[in-house]
Every structure is written in structure tokens, then in C-alpha cells.
Amino acid sequence: MTTGSLDFPVQLRPPERRFGLSLPVDRTEPSSDHELMLAVRGGELDALGELFERHQRPLLGFLVNLTGDRTAAEDIAQTVFQRMLKYRHTYRDDGSFTAWMYHLARRCAADHYRKSSSQPAAVDPAELSEHADEGPTAPERAAHGEDREILRRALACLGPDEREVLLLSRFQELSFAQVAGVLECSVGAARVRAHRALAELRRHFLKLQKGACP
């Protein structure tokens, strides 16, 4: 990664793609996530299948980056959907499905590591590089491949709380008010923590890029 022009004023639209977080939204789909979850709450349990199809990738991406452990991430993702079933009666009429899902996800991740008595491990770059890159063109992939690996390692250098707030902030569906709700802190605190986490990520990234591995 190199420092480019500042490109000021800033872009006015969010990036269209965020490490696989974009949802496969079907414009002809009549039901919103909220409507589907209300249907699940009302006893139409098959609606959870549609919610799973829509959210499994972003949820798994979040959990893999959060835990650095793909196997654990899949186990936790499964638990998240099981808890949606179990606690469907607690879903609120005025709720945001995405915020509720990530609220459950961080609880499930915490429970997972409490049970296994271990902390999230660093991401194994060898494993992650097996996954196809869907975004940039081939030359871009070649240029960015090494940086991506370093970025994974830099992400793993962050503390769990820093990783969590930073990853949550990357979801277009979540406002900072919702991120704060998921983290159970004030909006201001969520903003400050996300900024610090991002600055830390950059610091680790530059350090690793220069070969100063921690």
C-alpha cells in the first residue's frame, strides 16, 4: 500500500463493495429483513432460511475477521442463527435485523471463547489466501495481494474490542448509533473507539510492511 493523493473533498457515496459485506439484494424481493424476521417471530420459521441466504456471507466475513479462525467462525455463525430461532420472541417491532444479528453475533463469539477458554487467534494468511478475490482485476490483485496478507496480520494485531468496533463500522447497513447499540456504549464512544482502532490498524500495517513483525 502506498500513500496516494488525498483526493479532497471526500467521496460522497459509500464504497459499493466492502470485503464481501454487500448483500445480494434482489430488488424484486418483496420482504425486507425486518419483515422476514417478524414472520419468523410469528411462527413462519422457513423465513429464517431466506435471512440466512442473505446474511451468511457478511456474517461469516465479520466473524472470520473478528476471530481469525474460520472453523470457529462457522460454528459461531451457526449458533447465531440458532439463537435467532430460540429468541425470536425477543425481536422487537421497531428493531433493526442487522443490528440485532450482530448483537447476537458478538455475544455468541464471547460465549464461544468463554467455553473454549481461549482467545481469538491471529488469522492464518495461508488459509485466507485460498479464498477467491472477487473484487479487483488481475493486475490489481497482484499489486494488492501482499498488502492484503499484511493487512490480515495487522488486523490480528488489534485487540478483540478494537477489531469488533472497526469491523462493525464497515457495515453500510449499520449507522454509528446502531453500532453503539450493538456495543452497548454511547455513539460518541463508538466513534472514538472506531477511529482509534483504524489508526492502530494503520500503524500495525505500516510496521508489518516495513518488516518489523511483532
Binding site: M1, G20, R57, P58, G61, E134, L151, L155, L198, F205
Partner: peptide
């Protein structure tokens, strides 16, 4: 840094 983070590929479930 954010752009690089956003480009990280998502794992396939």
C-alpha cells in the same frame, strides 16, 4: 486503510 480493509475478500461459507 479503510479501502484496503473493504477490499479484503469474504470467505465463502
Amino acid at each position: 486503510t479503510l479501502a484496503a480493509l473493504d477490499r479484503l475478500p469474504a470467505p465463502e461459507p
